[in-house]
Design a protein around this nucleic acid. Structure first.
Lengths: 345, 345
DNA sequence: AATAAATTTGACAGCGCTGTCATTTGTGTT
DNA sequence: AACACAAATGACAGCGCTGTCAAATTTATT
């Protein structure tokens, strides 16, 4: 429908620039991508034309022709959790510096949505995929394996990574955190958990193992409410706990938001922390050090995970993108602050 | 270099699927995009072939051929600030439901990076651009205007929007917040600010206006440290304030992180809040209601901004994408909690 | 001055898909 | 049985760019 006449309406193309600058299209292409292979004179003419037309290259065409997308796919379960925002930031920093564009998807903790995101990313021909977690649908796993792009699974550890695996053992962290409370002399240790995040579930399994090993029962000590974890939710769960059961001596909360909520509710109820109840969080968010009492927590190295993931991806893309399998365990750290204390004896 | 022989190595294409399913490529294309225009029998054969080959369409080719990208560009200054994470979440929800893919860039508060992001997004032929702020480089503005895609500027208000403008008057909010403290009887009201965010600067200008109108001097009452705003920074700034000057009666902090840090430092220093110092934050982050004392703050409707921006964009893409200019003022709300109180008289 | 070598520019084809239109097949009507 | 009409399928060209190689130009070498 469009004739030559409506150049004014059409999106500008390389050819338009070439005509205006009186050079061939391919020269324009080169001037834009490898400026020093074009003589200064032409380059200047081309720059002027580009500027005059406000020309922006069509990336779809460029990608199709070069079969290089210069982009990286990242999938996180949510953007709401600061943990992932910080991790993303670290990824972004490394990739942007290296000239890669980052495409972020969030799966809302759904494997089905994750698979959809993987399809879209592979369809974009991203040059690497960095994904939170080690659980995927069988099809998603197959797609990733077939894709031949480096795949980096983060935040958890697995014996059978698709490619590269960078993270920590969530279950071991849960175990050690519980052990930390047991070693303080506590016996009735509760576990507080919000919605069904697989990593929180792994921490719960570690908690169970530690309790069993110490011959402690945890029946009636699991406080769960299937909502997005938040300060408000922690507060609400603590209300229920205080109402319905004998107050536990210690609470291990599956993340810091829940922990802070529980902490505040305890204050409100006159349950002194840590004298009456010890509270331990997870993730070591910034506010943990600043609440009062300050919140003990388990620090995980999300920025380091992001940075290492990005660097590893870049290495693999540059060097040998073979099917290396490798695991990096970045560990965790229990930070004891004021909210946890020895059991009264 | 690749002959027909290495179909096993090449990325699978529509043609591969077509051959395997013994249909024409175009039928495969249709089966994938408009399944109900293809007979059940063929559809099934095609689905089987797609599955067997783990075929993923090349989006670059699709976009080039159809000149539709089904994607939306979003630019935020940072992912670190929860405000923008929540806003993004709201955008994502609306767009994904409508079948659009969201491409997020962060500008790190740099107009230059913003221009670069705009170029890349336009190069991707996104069908709308949603961008935080109203300040852009002249070239960025020109690119956006020439692009013919709906542009939505958010979080601030301007008399001269490129297209659509959804937000609140940051300066008026700063003015009203300051007025709120003045009306409580405070005279020495300090302003605490971190790095050079334009929106925080606008709030500062509102503060200045309110102070001047009330004939209050604010010399030596500006506490500033050019670092990323955080709880730790608020705490550090409060330390300086307490050390170097007569303690103000009230502090208006340019965001809640600074406010919480200041609040905690006051506790530590034995400066009772609000009896000695009133503290007012901005943004009303979740923890504000849960700190102790709870933090007074100015709530802004970031989720609503995101939702409305997405819906408006979708409307414009569907209907008349003409150069409508329109502004939506979503306002703000001062939430008085425990951290602000009347001046002793 | 004649040749080789390096630099700069251009012609051509094709990346993998989809819009458009033509053709084939199936259904209903008289 | 003959026709019109709708539904399903296919052929063709082209989206806008870049890889590859060839041609034209400049510079260095003998």
């Amino acid at each position: 429908m469009l004739g030559e006449a409506d150049i004014t309406k059409r999106r500008k193309t390389l050819d338009d620039v070439a005509k205006l600058a009186k050079v061939s299209p391919i020269t324009v292409s080169r001037a834009l991508r490898k400026p020093d292979t074009v003589s200064p004179e032409l380059r200047q003419r081309i720059d002027a034309a580009v500027h005059k037309l406000a020309y922006v290259p069509n990336l779809a065409a460029s990608r199709l022709a070069s079969s290089r997308s210069h982009s990286i796919g990242v999938i996180v379960p949510t953007l709401y959790n600061v943990i992932f925002a910080e991790y993303l930031l670290a990824l972004h920093e490394v990739f942007l510096e290296s000239g890669y564009q980052v495409i972020v998807f969030n799966s809302h903790y759904s494997l089905h949505e994750e698979e959809k995101a993987i399809r879209t990313l592979l369809g974009q021909r991203v040059e690497a995929i960095i994904i939170v977690g080690i659980d995927h649908t069988p099809m998603a796993r197959r797609l990733l394996q077939k894709s031949k792009v480096p795949v980096i699974e983060t935040f958890e550890l697995t014996d059978d990574p698709i490619n590269i695996n960078i993270g920590l053992s969530q279950s071991q962290a849960g175990y050690d955190a519980t052990k930390f409370l047991i070693d303080l002399g506590h016996r009735r240790i509760g576990f507080v958990i919000g919605n069904l995040d697989v990593r929180a579930a792994a921490r719960l399994s570690g908690y169970r193992r530690a309790m069993e090993e110490a011959n402690l029962s945890y029946t009636n000590l699991l406080a769960h409410k299937a909502e997005r974890s938040s300060i408000a939710l922690g507060s609400a769960i603590m209300s229920d706990v205080a109402e319905n059961s004998k107050i536990p001596e210690a609470l291990f909360c599956s993340d810091d938001n829940l922990a802070l909520g529980a902490l505040m509710k305890c204050r409100q109820l006159g349950l002194h922390v840590p004298e009456v109840v010890s509270i331990l969080g997870f993730h070591d968010l910034e506010f943990a050090a600043y609440s009062s009492p300050s919140l003990s927590s388990v620090a995980i190295h999300r920025r380091e995970i992001g940075k290492l993931a990005a660097e590893t991806a870049i290495n693999m893309m540059a060097g040998n993108p073979s099917t290396i399998k490798r695991q990096f365990d970045l560990g965790y750290e229990i930070i004891a602050r004021q909210s946890t204390g020895k059991a009264p004896r």
